[in-house]
Design a protein around this nucleic acid. Sequence first.
DNA 1: CGTGGCAGTTTGTCCAGGACAATGAGCATG
DNA 2: CATGCTCATTGTCCTGGACAAACTGCCACG
Lengths: 308, 308
Amino acid sequence: MTFSSPGAGPLTIGEAERHSGVPKETLRVWERRYGFPAPTRDAAGDRLYTVADVEKLKRMKALIDAGERPAQLAGLGIDELAARAPKPAPANDAVGEWVEAALDRLRRHDVDGLRDLLQAGIYARGLERFVQDNVAALTRAVGEAWVGGRLQVYEEHLFTEQLVRVLRGALDGLPRPPAARPRVLLTTAPGEPHALGLLMAECLLTLGGARCLSLGPETPPEQIAGAAAAHDADVVALSFSGMFGEAAARAFARDLRGQLPATTELWAGGACAGLADLAQDGVRPLVNLADIPEALAGWRFAAARKER
Amino acid sequence: MTFSSPGAGPLTIGEAERHSGVPKETLRVWERRYGFPAPTRDAAGDRLYTVADVEKLKRMKALIDAGERPAQLAGLGIDELAARAPKPAPANDAVGEWVEAALDRLRRHDVDGLRDLLQAGIYARGLERFVQDNVAALTRAVGEAWVGGRLQVYEEHLFTEQLVRVLRGALDGLPRPPAARPRVLLTTAPGEPHALGLLMAECLLTLGGARCLSLGPETPPEQIAGAAAAHDADVVALSFSGMFGEAAARAFARDLRGQLPATTELWAGGACAGLADLAQDGVRPLVNLADIPEALAGWRFAAARKER
DNA sequence: CGTGGCAGTTTGTCCAGGACAATGAGCATG
DNA sequence: CATGCTCATTGTCCTGGACAAACTGCCACG
């Protein structure tokens, strides 16, 4: 594995895969079919991608994950791709203005100001509404700004870091009675590194009186099943971001469902498309964050009926 | 992408890659050269790996990352692989006993007890010595226990999660004067998802009076350079875990060094082998955590001399 | 007019078997 | 003992083809 110089010089296919998220096989087949990317070759005949190639690949992947088709996208320029990005909704209400203020501080690199604004949001609206409204709107806005090329990658990293910090701090302040029910095991599938959704869910679940245990991201299914058994979990909750493939999410959830005892519920939430269809497979889809309190109430109702 | 059923049934080569961490190309070439793994085929001729194959692959990868060679390992059984794992050092001193106590709670799934023990360690020894001695020894012990098959993957996840929680909490309690110097930008290279080392470094740096800004893991080099410029960083600090390749680490550090202004120092720490050689490339290697206060003092000395 | 099934197209993943550059090991020489 | 050289080991990349799953558009039917 050589890292070459992704900043100035050309990247190998492996580096292009890591930086863009598009697998090697797919890069080669796109080249064959659509003529993009069209990398030069080094002395050994290995492909060399430019930074601009990788930048365009990232945009393409974001749009494909949002439902577009590669054949339509490959011929477009980088600015035309940005034009296809979903338009940022105008800021009309209070949350919208708050989101704009946060984005503004992010763009001006005012890290402390951003953190203060996040923290102030919690105090002003309470943690539950903050997570459900402000955080949800803000992460969407940041994602859209990134796809549209109005935000650097490092600015997104910075944003995530500050949000994690504030949410973790809030979570530490909540009471966590050890005997609370349901006991919820939180994690993501392998290949899904985004842990922010997990943290948001943990906030709402803990607020709702559940006992949360987070494994962090990327736990293999048999390990999830093992952990659920060891910790006597009533519910396993998964988070799938919008970047995660629909088919992969369904296959993973179905597989995990098969490995869990029938008495353990499986919940799945996040921005991933087609989540609602999971209901057929014995998985409870949480299409938006407001479904979490509902799901908790549902579990408690069922548990109470079983008691009798 | 199908996820199949890694718990019960056979896995495709892509799933085997995701679950074992060994790339597809390497799986095929190992099969050709060493005869392991020897997957069956489905009707279409695609490889089908068993769960046992993947389990052995995980162990092999762990040992290879620790310096063993694949040709020696491929012929061994799963128990012989476990026997090759480094022996856990006997617990003689106070830290050793504390580590044993923590491992014990982890194995008994006493999450609250583990967190209390971690927290108590901070109070008893102070954050600086806690991070330098206890956390360093504990993470090493957990890594060894995992390679030796004495710890499940999910137990390791659980451990990391609790440690992150406690360290983040401690960090929130530290004063962070906005004007403090040096200003340190923290992150890892793409392909290095482990953020624990980053968090430990952030603790020690903040204790040492530096102003830290963490980007979280996996920031591309040009983005690091951009962030360093935007935030007027005096130092960029990278963390490379033991899983990260030596050559890749060097190439990445050298590349980044070239993109940073000469007045910005570049520090690199972590368990990655061959880190010390980076000194030739204008990178300051931090071979163990105790080097961090030293590096800070060195920067302050140089900065003071420049003032005059 | 809506709905379900069917053929055609698009798309991602996998295969074989060869090649090569970088790393590490073993050995000879100063 | 240190340094340099050669050889074996190892991971990554190549080509060009194949195929199954998902999605499209179309038509017939209720």
